[in-house]
């Protein structure tokens, strides 16, 4: 469990994080999105009790980040922006070292080491110096280090950067598995697809402040407005008057397609489909017009930058 209230950090005259309030429950993943320097890493460092908040408070795994620093750090697995690997150690030695640092007994250390090296497909290189590893292998080893002590809270900074698609999928699967085992997870990422696939909640940070936080659907609703649905027909649409359910409006009409804005899809869509099929028997598909997180993110950022008098590509 992660809870923060008005969490803020000031460096000299600069507020790197300003009033962040979040709550992530066990079994939930929060994705922090934002430009470089937006305050994501500073937030994560405060959650890991590496930086002392200037204002506000945070509790991680039930411990206060200010008072119980060591207990917080013992409960958290961190994947840092830089992997932080010791190049002259072997992969095996590296995990063994951190296993000892986290005070795991030798039996647990061995089983965790073997499992993680095997899971991430680097068991074959376990006795090689880390300096000989590829970028992707290093990323996997750093992630294995974060998971070594099976922490209840995970703070992952760009967990799949530098990975090939296959490895990235492997890591996403592992994160999903950890989520299902009631871990509390925060991911900082620039990979919007990853955030879309994994996150239960998404927070967009700009200049240290959270501009928006919520589920993907909530963000889409807030930023892009009411969802649009498209009906495709196998033949041309005959001009017929439609008895649309309340909260539904026709927005576009093509030769063999219709688009609707639907305010309450759960209630209105079955009625709408029924109406369409009763008027036109050749209804082929009925689906939501795709709206990606990227659209949401770019719109939010554009609005924020406009508000700060900045051009999008300045």
């Amino acid at each position: 469990m992660i809870e923060t209230c008005d969490l803020s950090k000031q460096f000299n005259d600069f507020w790197a994080v300003d009033g962040v309030t979040i709550s992530v429950k066990p079994g939930q993943i929060l994705a922090l999105l934002g430009q470089n320097g937006a305050g994501k890493t500073t937030t994560v460092r405060m959650l890991n009790s590496l930086l002392i908040p200037t204002r506000g408070w945070a509790r991680v795994a039930g411990y206060d980040v200010f008072r119980d620093g060591n207990k917080v750090r013992a409960s958290v697995g961190v994947l840092t922006e830089q992997h932080g690997l010791y190049m002259r150690m072997t992969g095996d030695e590296y995990l063994e070292f951190f296993g000892q640092v986290y005070r795991l007994d030798s039996k647990t250390r061995k089983s965790r080491r073997d499992y993680l090296l095997d899971y991430f497909g680097i068991a074959g290189a376990a006795s090689h110096r880390i300096g000989e590893y590829s970028k992707g292998m290093r990323q996997k080893l750093a992630l294995a280090r974060a998971l070594m002590h099976e922490p209840p809270v995970l703070l992952l900074d760009e967990p799949t950067s530098a990975m090939d698609p296959e490895s990235a999928r492997l890591v996403r699967d592992e994160i999903a598995r950890l989520k299902s085992s009631q871990r509390t997870i925060v991911i900082c990422t620039h990979n919007l697809f990853e955030a879309e696939v994994l996150a239960d909640m998404i927070a967009i940070i700009y200049k240290g402040r959270i501009l928006m936080i919520g589920t993907l659907d909530e963000l889409k609703q807030k930023v892009l407005g009411t969802a649009e649905y498209e009906a495709l027909f196998s033949s041309d649409w005959r001009e017929e008057s439609l008895n649309l359910p309340s909260g539904v409006t026709l927005t576009e009409q093509g030769a063999s397609s219709l688009r609707f804005k639907v305010e309450r899809p759960l209630e209105a869509n079955p009625l709408l489909m029924h109406e369409l099929m009763s008027k036109h028997t050749s209804l082929m598909t009925f689906q939501e017009v795709p709206r990606s997180l990227e659209q949401v993110y770019l719109k939010v950022m554009a609005d924020a930058q406009a508000l700060h008098g900045e051009a999008l590509h300045a």
């Binding site: 060591n70 013992a74 005070r103 280090r145």
Partner: peptide, 13 residues
């Protein structure tokens, strides 16, 4: 070298 953060993130005093 960027290796300090994992070490500082550990529960060592």
């Amino acid at each position: 070298r960027g290796t300090i953060e994992p070490l500082l993130s550990s529960p060592m005093e």
